[in-house]
Write a protein that binds this DNA or RNA. Structure first.
Lengths: 322, 322
DNA sequence: TTGTAGGCGTTATCAG
DNA sequence: CTGATAACGCCTACAA
């Protein structure tokens, strides 16, 4: 027999009253409550969450869809989880490892009511296909979504990019390379556009031969700089899509005994601990606040309050590589 | 009306038969199955996991207890999740941020049957107290546990430490500093013991004034080297408890224009991408395999198979800092 | 191969 | 303030 039932029997009260005590309902006689509470203690009672979830039609669980846990996304994750816990939600992690079928599990779990909502950090399935799951619950993305009706709390990285580029131009650098991440992402696109339009504005040539794609980690960054520095005409400044790439470039440039920023200026992105440690000039990305906003977005749909999502912006952090 | 019931009504079959089709039971007439499957499709049916979990008394969810998501633990997490998914389990992350009460939520959730088992990566509550929850389900720890009956799949880092220390001694370094993490952890203890006993064996003095504690990230590492290098007698080699600390020391030493490894030898720990990128000599830590073992341990208790847990060991990876 | 009946542990809506 | 009664959606003997 379940402990709940034992409590009913031992106390002599009905299901309803026992339930009221469990849920701290005010409409219970003090003596009744004490009696029931005592028995609950004796029996070491703990409510069964599955029963509660079934009955309420809610699990208070949110899923996070992500290709793989990588340093870059950890901070976002951490803040999201923290925020969610503050509102009584637990977080499940769905790592797809790039496998579309595995990734679908998360969406199926939204359909099956294992989770009340979904946050997409990075996904590999077609957004159009994923949109079909919107009817099962709130879905929000950090990654910018090209198609489909899944909304995104992402910021336009092109805006942050402009800050870095403007500073390089101010300081007189004109031979500027661009180090991108995913070749087909919206952010890469808007970074490239930002670069090209700003260069045009200043009457400077656009150097597409100095574009590098698919640079994510430090090792990629090192490789990218090797490739750039080996060209007959090498750039004198680089704009990177994240601090890890920037750190890799810095390491490789130091190995080549280049003076930084004399012979090479480097601008990172995100303002992680790494860039602080290596004194890399970077663009501060309000990741923590974006993570909060992501939860707020979901909460505004399944919760009863309606929280305001603060408007966020980038900020240049100048250090020693420019 | 639930879709399950609609299927019953539309198909004319009983609950049991519908359930059999849902669960792919072989004992169903082909025509019956097809008929029911068709209706399921039409209705866009998906089983409700809460109902299943309630009925089966199992959620196929495992919780991970961790103070905060940090770069160092990401790789472990990633592999654990991947392994768990392979066995049909999802993973919930409980970050305590060092708050004991928050951390208890995970254990209460084991009690409430939200999760079938728990993996402790790092915890702040007293292991003795946590042991009380063992009766509610399997609990395994990565962190080494001093007290209580929670078992751990951790390896003795002292063993790995010896590999690094032995190499330094071979190469003639005798002025060796030790860079530790948590001052009171079992690993710190066994690292210190490894150092002290090995130095004694070689008839060399033990330099406790060169011990540094609480060094976790790159910034800590930089600070540690500043403090060491400022001493009237400075060490010529450092053994670090992780690669981030080692990277920080390397950065700071380079800033001081020290020749590496000529004037300072550095040994990291874990063999992360960072150490590879910076060419830091380090001790390979089989994190992936430990994560697998952690899941296997839980699976051996709640699953029906009994998987063998492979015996693991450390390995020195020599690069350019020794 | 199919059906019946009971159970999983709660919440929710009434009525009193 | 308390109690019936009916959901919640599915699983599992056991029986036919």
């Amino acid at each position: 027999m379940s402990k709940f039932k034992q409590i009913m029997l031992l106390s002599g009260y009905s299901r309803a009253t026992v339930s009221r005590v469990i849920n701290n309902s005010p409409n219970v006689n003090k003596e009744t409550r004490d009696k029931i509470l005592t028995i609950m203690k004796q029996l070491d009672y703990a409510p069964n969450r599955n029963a509660v979830a079934l009955s309420k039609g809610r699990t208070n669980q949110i899923g996070i869809v992500i290709v793989a846990l990588h340093e870059i996304t950890v901070s976002f994750l951490d803040h999201f989880i923290k925020t969610a816990v503050g509102y009584g939600f637990q977080t499940l992690i769905y790592t797809s490892q790039g496998d579309k079928t595995k990734e679908m599990q998360a969406f199926e779990d939204l359909r099956s009511k294992r989770v009340d909502g979904l946050l997409i950090i990075t996904c590999v399935n077609d957004p159009g296909k994923l949109s079909a799951y919107c009817k099962y619950g709130p879905i929000i993305a950090w990654q910018r979504m090209r198609r489909g009706q899944i909304s995104s709390i992402a910021m336009d990285q092109g805006e942050g990019y402009k800050l870095g580029l403007a500073r390089l131009l101010e300081k007189g650098y004109t031979q500027i390379a661009n180090i991108f991440g995913r070749p087909d992402s919206l952010n890469t696109r808007s970074r490239r556009l930002a670069y090209e339009s700003m260069m045009k504005q200043h009457g400077l040539p656009i150097r597409a031969e100095w574009y590098r794609y698919g640079v994510y980690g430090m090792l990629d960054g090192e490789k990218a700089w090797r490739s750039l520095s080996a060209m007959k005409e090498a750039p004198t400044a680089v704009l990177c899509s994240n601090d890890y790439a920037a750190a890799g470039m810095l390491n490789e440039a130091r190995r080549q005994h280049l003076a930084i920023p004399g012979q090479l200026a480097i601008v990172g992105f995100d303002d992680t601990e790494l860039s602080a440690s290596l004194a890399i000039t970077t663009v501060h990305n309000p990741i923590k606040e974006q993570a909060q906003n992501a939860f707020y977005h979901i909460w505004n749909i399944i919760g009863d309050e309606c929280l305001e999502l603060p408007q966020l912006s980038y900020r240049l952090v100048e250090r020693q590589t420019t």
